[in-house]
Amino acid sequence: MKNFARFSVLGLLSSVFWLLAACNLPAPQADTVRYFTLSGPVAAAADGATVRPVQLAGHLRNRAMAVRISANEIVYNEDVRWAEALDDAVTQLLRARVGAAGAGSIITVQIQRCELVRAEGNSVQLAATWTIFTPATDGGGGARHGSFTASPRTWDGKDYGTLVGQIRDAVNELGDALAAAAGGK
């Protein structure tokens, strides 16, 4: 009886294995998701203006890349994602770009657009508002406010690495504008 039970179990297991081998299981699919970052290694902090963490428009607070397809419609490209939070990446780039300009100043930035706009011929757009508080602000000098729109850029629609590079260039352009404004230039 003991041998019969052993053979029954072995027979059942081999039948299951043959049945599984005969099944036509789909081949595993390659992961098509690509992850991008705007920044490189973090540079040493300079004794310049303090750039507070950037505030992003709500639709940009997603790991999937936002793509504007019409004036009021956004889609998220699930195959193209940010490897880090976009607000952190933009803040790092701006801190590195502002450098030693405007020592003692505090800069706040609100990003309204940082996206590909398909409805406008694959234009890459960055729009922001900023405020610079200087040490004189505390003495009643007031804060300086401004807005920024990056120079026109158009993506060729081929490589997302190129698109991310164009977004990084637009953020660096914003950083240069902030450095000039903070330095009083």
Rank of each mutant, 00 (worst) to 15 (best):
L12D: 10
G102M: 06
L163I: 13
L38K: 13
A127D: 02
A43Q: 01
V42R: 12
D79L: 08
L12F: 07
E120S: 09
D159S: 11
R97G: 13
A30N: 08
V80L: 09
T32A: 04
G142N: 04
V67D: 09
A22K: 05
K2Y: 06
G102I: 13
C23G: 12
E78D: 13
A27K: 03
A44V: 01
A57P: 00
K158F: 12
A180E: 04
I167P: 15
V51A: 02
A150V: 02
F4K: 15
R63W: 00
A83T: 10
F17D: 06
V33E: 06
V33M: 04
Q29T: 07
T149Y: 08
F148K: 12
L163D: 10
F133H: 05
F148M: 02
R52Y: 08
V164Y: 10
D138K: 05
L13A: 07
N62G: 14
N3R: 11
G102C: 06
A96Y: 11
G58V: 01
T37Q: 14
D31L: 03
G40Q: 14
A85T: 14
D138F: 01
A85F: 10
G142Y: 11
I111G: 06
G48P: 14
N3P: 02
P152Y: 08
A96Q: 10
G48Q: 01
V42E: 12
